[in-house]
């Protein structure tokens, strides 16, 4: 048991090191002068003294290998460095952005689950037509690109109907459209998997025996079948979380919502190396944690796995 946990942790550390190295060298390959990027608030004409100072301060005049080792050393002590573009320590900044993105992701995941469950429950009990409609809806929902869904929701709910604000700056109503944008396609994926498992579960021996014991149809659905059908969807949640974070890049940009995704895209366009590395590291950490958690949740929820 302890061995397995240690192996897992060692694996996680290895992945983080590799992620940090890949990101560092990747961003270093970009052509252009990083000192200019530090001073390059749009429109500033950097003086030679300023450039020289920045090169020295950030260590750009050092060999790349030295810069790389320095970077790793700082990472090991939890120091993510200093953002070129924002002139602030990356660590606290990224952490302050993490909350907003996590809130968005968790709400979207929860809503996607609800939508998927409701659709699956309805479409498995409503006969062939309902099954077809449900399956069609799920397939289309899963195919909706975030950027298109977001702009369409803004047109309908903000511009035509004026119900929800098009920007998400605090306040509960501002969360509605971003959460919907992320939840609908995800619900499409989760719904498909739940419906298939639900159909299988409803025909399984334990449901038949529950029915024969005289349990109500509703009771059977809620207590046995749905629980059983959720298992594969739980194991999907790790993936779902990763895809939500990647979706946050688009959604936070469109809805002007502070968060990791928007920070990352900004950092990418400004070539803010420490910031890109910081965001990617945090995403990797959170993603690895989520994967471990969903593994554990699957084990807990599935008696067969718990035994093995």
């Amino acid at each position: 048991m302890i061995g397995r946990v240690a192996a897992r942790l060692g694996g996680a550390v290895f992945v983080l090191w590799a992620v940090a190295s890949i990101t560092f060298f990747a961003v270093r390959l970009i052509p252009g002068d990083p000192a200019q990027a530090v001073l390059g608030g749009p429109g500033s004409q950097a003086s030679p003294e300023a450039l020289a100072m920045v090169r020295n301060e950030y260590g750009f005049d050092q060999p790349v290998l030295v810069q790389y080792l320095a970077q790793l050393g700082r990472l090991a002590t939890g120091d993510l460095g200093r953002s070129y573009a924002l002139n602030q320590d990356v660590g606290p900044l990224v952490l302050s952005q993490l909350g907003g993105t996590l809130l968005l992701a968790v709400l979207a995941l929860a809503l996607a689950w609800l939508l998927a469950l409701a659709l699956a429950a309805w479409s498995t009990r409503g006969g062939t037509v309902a099954a077809r409609v449900g399956s069609g809806l799920e397939t289309v929902a899963a195919a909706l690109p975030h950027f298109w869904l977001a702009t369409s929701l803004i047109v309908v709910f903000s511009i035509w109907l004026g119900v929800f604000p098009p920007v998400s700056t605090g306040g509960a109503t501002g969360l509605v459209l971003p959460v919907l944008t992320l939840a609908i396609p995800l619900a499409g994926f989760l719904g498909q998997i739940m419906r298939e498992s639900l159909l299988l579960a409803l025909e399984s021996p334990f449901v038949l025996s529950a029915r024969s014991r005289g349990e109500s149809e509703r009771g059977v659905l809620w207590t046995h079948a749905l629980r059983h059908a959720s298992l594969p969807a739980i194991s999907l949640s790790g993936w779902a979380f990763g895809s939500l974070i990647s979706g946050a890049v688009v959604v936070e940009t469109i809805f002007a919502r502070p968060g990791l995704g928007r920070t990352l895209l900004n950092a990418v366009t400004l070539r803010d190396v420490p910031m890109v590395i910081g965001v990617v590291m945090i995403v990797a950490v959170v993603y690895i944690l989520m994967t471990l958690l969903t593994d554990a949740a699957t084990r807990l929820a599935d008696p067969r796995l718990r035994l093995s």
């Binding site: 004026g162 098009p166 920007v167 700056t169 940009t253």
Partner: peptide
Amino acid sequence: WRFIPDSASRYAALQSGEV
């Protein structure tokens, strides 16, 4: 003083009275 880089979102926010 806020920053809303997307021009359409910015205008929609003005229309809705957010800003």
